[in-house]
């Protein structure tokens, strides 16, 4: 077994070049998802090199950019929680970041990692969907509703690096996270809602974090009951937990009812 090479780019440009030219290369940000798999050698295909993007200054920080709030792909959850700009413009993201793991995870976990990992249970992902966030990469901008293409699959090219996430300003998003990580298999639902424009985004109820389009259409018409009815058909609870699919539909409807009654 050969060892996995560690690549330490000096800046973003260098990182982009290394990622494009090194076969079997995998970016490493906070490592909170990747390191365990790297150590246990359970990644398929097993990477030949990892590219450390954690320290790249270009991928850090929270700032305004052409009328949007921009968060660097390798900024930590702690950095987001501490940012006054983030509190002002994306308070729901800040609140969600506080629910991710404990201090050790918040100090390392990043939006870029949560996005690229593309778990249906990724907690920031419904929030990003409700904000209509834009995923910025080394070569283009991807609207978040086009980012998740299948179970743990994304629109990213194999050598494409996420550099930032941009959020439109002035949107009110509320969310609710039900269930803990340990209890995830049974009850976890993560939902984020914006009233105007109508966005209802849900995690852990399908193979991808999804927008409940039928429910959104009802909400756009001001039909709250219609939205609650429609959301049960919008979601696709995963088949291998058959016995809980109905339960999840009910939980999802209850969470939506609750979120729409507070807003």
């Amino acid at each position: 077994m050969h060892e996995v090479t560690f690549l330490c780019p000096k800046d973003l440009q260098d990182a982009v070049r290394l990622y494009r030219t090194t076969p079997g290369c995998r970016p490493l940000a906070g490592g909170t998802d990747l390191m365990v798999m790297l150590h246990a050698r359970t990644l398929r295909p097993q990477p030949r090199a990892v590219l450390d993007i954690w320290s790249l200054a270009e991928l850090k920080g929270v700032r305004r950019h052409s009328g949007m709030l921009e968060i660097g792909a390798a900024e930590s959850y702690t950095g987001i929680i501490r940012s006054r700009e983030a509190h002002r413009h994306v308070p729901a993201l800040v609140a969600a970041a506080r629910t991710i793991g404990a201090a050790q995870i918040q100090n390392r976990g990043t939006l870029g990692g949560n996005l690229a990992n593309a778990s249906p249970a990724g907690d920031t992902l419904p929030i990003l969907l409700a904000y209509d966030a834009v995923v910025v990469t080394d070569r283009r901008s991807i609207p978040i509703d086009q980012f998740f293409t299948g179970y743990r699959k994304t629109a990213l090219q194999p050598d494409e690096l996420i550099t930032a996430v941009r959020f439109p300003q002035g949107r009110d998003v509320v969310f609710r996270k039900v269930g803990t990580r340990a209890a995830q298999a049974i009850s976890k639902v993560m939902m984020a809602v914006s009233r105007k424009p109508a966005r209802i985004a849900i995690g852990s109820v399908a193979e991808v974090p999804l927008r409940a389009r039928g429910a959104e259409a009802a909400l756009e018409r001001g039909d709250v009951d219609g939205a609650i009815a429609a959301v049960a058909d919008d979601i696709r609870p995963i088949d291998d937990v058959r016995s809980t699919a109905d339960y999840r539909r009910t939980v999802t409807q209850n969470v939506l009812r609750e979120l729409l009654s507070v807003g």
Partner: peptide
Amino acid sequence: VDSCLIAVGQ
């Protein structure tokens, strides 16, 4: 941080 999740190169 959890040192089991950090690559020493970092």
